[in-house]
């Protein structure tokens, strides 16, 4: 079946199992004969490689454009500082100061400069590594240590992964700018949650975010537990969101995780859950 589908795996709360679900889903996709790509957009702490064990074949830097002011051409008009929303460039007294690590790389200052005194240089923020993981096209970003500006790197990872016909995007946790950068433009989002009050509270925030962005999605309950599942079921019914899979809380899954093994191959029953999840996602996303 020829697909062209991008699925993001996200969650409000951290540690709910985004990487577990997305890496294992990638295995199911390969077995189903798809040309699958796995994109780890959690660039501050990528960990999908620990499970998919890719052979990296291509590494390249990613940067953002920051301004360089030609003092001789500069007329000290201050237009650059007025347009900048981040205080990354400021005219003070008879000079213009730039603060590279405050700059979001929008290019506004060079556009408004009437003297053509501003050019741009690339400030490196991280690298992208690409390779093959048992048939899965593997791409992840690694943000430089101490770097605060992750969205440009996340966007670059998304752009690098455009060639798969089934692309799975492993999203950082939360609901802020890095998450938006990772999910914007995907076809469908799986929100992984635990059936706990903490998990459900943050799931609610993530659902609000998706509604704001207008992206359809459904819920995957990870570490499902007969004692607590009713909380998740009630919550999803109230919010009018579908549950596409329930992954039981099993010690063997945690054991596989702890040694970097894919539960897909290591834990009986897991393969079937992921195959069914893949089928459900395709059905829902293609509609």
């Amino acid at each position: 079946m020829a697909l062209n589908l991008t699925i993001a795996v996200a969650s409000g709360k951290g540690g709910t199992g985004k990487t577990t679900v997305s890496a294992n889903l990638a295995c199911a996709a390969i077995e189903a004969g798809h040309n699958a790509a796995y994109l780890d957009c959690d660039v501050e702490e990528p960990n999908g490689h620990l499970f998919l064990k890719p052979r990296i074949s291509h590494i390249y830097p990613v940067g953002i454009p920051v301004p360089v002011v030609n003092e001789e051409k500069c007329t000290k008009c201050g237009a650059c500082g007025e347009i900048c929303q981040y205080s990354a460039i400021v005219k003070i007294s008879k000079t213009v100061l730039t603060f590279d690590n405050m700059c979001h790389g929008c290019g506004g200052c060079s556009l408004v400069c009437p003297a053509g005194a501003i050019t741009e240089k690339e400030r490196p923020i991280g690298v992208i590594e690409e390779g093959d993981a048992g048939g899965v096209s593997f791409i992840h970003g690694r943000l430089n240590i101490g770097e605060a500006m992750s969205p440009p790197l996340i966007k670059a990872v998304r752009k690098a992964g455009l060639h798969g016909n089934l692309t799975i995007v492993d999203v950082p946790p939360g609901t802020s700018c890095p998450v938006i950068a990772a999910v914007r433009g995907v076809d469908y989002v799986l929100l992984v949650t635990e059936p706990t009050p903490f998990g459900l509270n943050d799931l609610g925030l993530a659902l609000d975010m998706l509604r704001e962005l207008g992206i359809p999605g459904a819920v995957v309950i990870n570490r499902s537990d007969p004692e607590y599942n009713h909380l998740a079921h009630d919550f999803c019914r109230e919010r009018g969101v579908q549950i596409l899979a329930e992954i039981p809380d099993e010690r063997r899954v945690a054991e596989a995780y702890s040694v970097g093994e894919l539960a897909y191959y290591a834990v009986p029953g897991y393969r079937k859950i992921m195959q069914q999840l893949l089928t459900s996602v395709e059905r829902e996303a293609i509609g």
């Binding site: 500082g81 981040y86 205080s87 400021v90 003070i92 100061l97 603060f99 405050m102």
Partner: peptide, 15 residues
């Protein structure tokens, strides 16, 4: 309530 750059902005204002 500035998200970032309060010190730079304050310096501009004082200037």
């Amino acid at each position: 309530n500035a998200k970032q750059g309060a010190g730079i902005q304050a310096a501009e204002q004082v200037s």
